[in-house]
Design a protein around this nucleic acid. Structure first.
Lengths: 207, 207, 207, 207
DNA sequence: AATGAATGAGGATTCATTCAT
DNA sequence: GATGAATGAATCCTCATTCAT
């Protein structure tokens, strides 16, 4: 009955299950047994493939980041104008991370993980730098001298909006998020911005 | 050593120790024993005074939020102009929460706690609403029709910048944070903003 | 403020509280703190007066047994006929132990205590022997040669009925209990017994 | 050592160990660790199989009651006469419960457990009702109108005698117990009973 | 390849008991 | 006389991890 080439299948199932469980419980307090059960195998097998719980978490985080990066890259290729590229990055930031539905809940918890696990922190840093440079590149033609500063603000804004989406009891609204951030962007670029529709039931308070 | 009136002293020590330990470990995985030891007592005594670990966490969170709210309130009283009030809120958001040094590390973890613990979520919601109304009130005279929308963006920006401060390996720089957000504010209010100095070693990537 | 002669008052309050709490919880898992609180004092004071939890339990048990014995003795003095004395013993067995209301619940638990604590066992044995001799004495004039055997059965019957009363969810019914046992007694003594009224909702199953 | 199909073996070992330990200590204050150690495994494994201490207790109680019921049922099948059936029930009540030797000590403690734990109480009630109906059925042909009343007294007598056996320091004497109860039964049924031999060292005192 | 079996280490919580005031 | 303060020792329970099959 032993099948060949099960390793990638099992690993993928575990990664997916990890994201789902963390998202569902909205906490890193997920047991290996829970993850394995959801992935349809024993916890012993999970250890067999990953060696430790930390490695499972790391793989799950890596997976989320990889997909995110891939989607941003894809969107950038299509967009031809500078502003189109910026919009693409924004849009991906609020859609790509939902590929599993619950992954929005997993994201914040990976941030927490990055606080403690150096490997996770390094992983995060790589992607953060890469995406920052994406923003700067896209901004350069539009606001050469202020590109860095605007990129910084844009990044913070994305994080902040995303954080609120992750914590709000209501269903996430990606479009509203993008509209809000584009409003800021256009302000910086000197365009007249379309009046923003403020979503109801949103907290406007600081973190 | 037993004296009278130790309860408030012990409780305060435990709250302080909780914030310090969460900040130090950058994780909610802090044991009662660790907290109690840092507070200079046995874990049994910690339970005696708080009843459960959850209550200890809650008390610590309540403490941070109370101090934060108090400082904002204080700053608002002094400021006479609308813009001064906005600036005060921003400034407090990046200074008050550091009163213990490590409290910046505890903050994000309390956010995680709020995802799971209803009591913590309620606590957070109260403060978020209160501060959002502060922002809206201050904005009303300056941009009556867009006050709500701007408050929303400001709130997200504060959260985002704070999140990055909490996660960055470098020492937090409150002034730079405030400057960045004021730049956005002045843009919205139609003023010319002073060119912002971009802090080094900052990630500009989305969450 | 220190009052004189508090010792007997405090001790009595603790004994009473112990019986009430054991009866209320229907278990020996009563904490000294619970007992002390119900007795209106600190647990430290309870220890001061009794030295240990075991001693508190013992004192409570001693108290119940003392009252029981006293009531039986009193009833025996009044009754002039042999059968009257037997009936008195029975009646006391189902009324005296209720002096506190909840004491019926404490009784079974003291039996359990007697299984473990030698002092408690000795206490119990003394009273059991004394009361057995009461039964035998009362029976001697009525059934000289079978007095011992009948006393044995009577004792077991009393215990059994009492046990069921203690465990039944319904309110204890002392009269029915006495009637049932008198029925047996009269059978042994050759009298015609009055038809017994069978209480509803009673289990007739063995222990 | 790990083999397949250990679960029933481990569970049985734990149930047996529970009865032995409760019997040995004559108290419900048995730790899971003690039980597990006597069953030859870690306390973690005990929890793995039963989930909680309560479930372990319940399983042990269920086991005793199941065996008891089975033995009574078996004995009833063999007996052809009504009186034979009654005698069988009595005899089983004083032998079946000794299958493990110490189980007699566990029995009383399960009664205490039933005072507090609803599940245990329900368990007990089921068996009590079932056995009461056994008694009534067997009595009907012999004393139709008084069957219920006699069953009640018989039940109480069984409980009482059993309780004394459980508490007495001497070795339990099942034959004497049965003889004593049969004496009552024959009295009720109008037979002449053989003179009973009174066991030495027995308390004839009420509970 | 896969898993049931098994456990050591640790964590929250409780409680009898002691002590200084 | 009285108590708040304080703790060590236990207890139940969980979980990542290992191992034999």
């Amino acid at each position: 009955m032993p099948k060949l080439g099960m390793e990638p299948i099992r690993k993928a199932a575990l990664v997916k299950a990890t994201i789902l469980e963390i998202g569902r419980l909205r906490s890193l307090d997920v047991t290996v047994t829970q993850i394995a059960k959801r992935a349809g195998m024993s916890s012993a097998l999970a250890h067999h493939y990953f060696g430790s719980k930390d490695e499972i978490f790391l793989a799950a985080m890596r997976h989320i980041l990889t997909i995110y990066a891939a989607e941003v890259r894809g969107a950038l290729m299509i967009s031809k104008t500078a502003r189109g590229r910026l919009e693409a990055i924004l849009r991906m930031s609020f859609s790509a991370r939902n590929f599993y539905g619950e992954s929005i809940g997993a994201w914040l918890n990976f941030y927490v993980l990055a606080q403690t696990a150096p490997k996770a922190a390094r992983l995060l840093a790589v992607y953060q730098r890469r995406l920052n440079s994406n923003l700067v590149h896209a901004l350069r033609p539009l606001a050469s001298d202020r590109a860095t500063a605007i990129a910084l603000t844009l990044g913070a804004l994305i994080d902040g909006v995303y954080l609120r989406e992750a914590l709000a009891p209501k269903a996430p609204d990606g479009d509203a998020a993008v509209t809000m951030i584009l409003n800021y962007l256009d302000l910086e670029l000197g365009r007249t911005s379309a009046p923003m529709i403020s979503p109801s039931n949103s907290f406007g308070a600081p973190l």
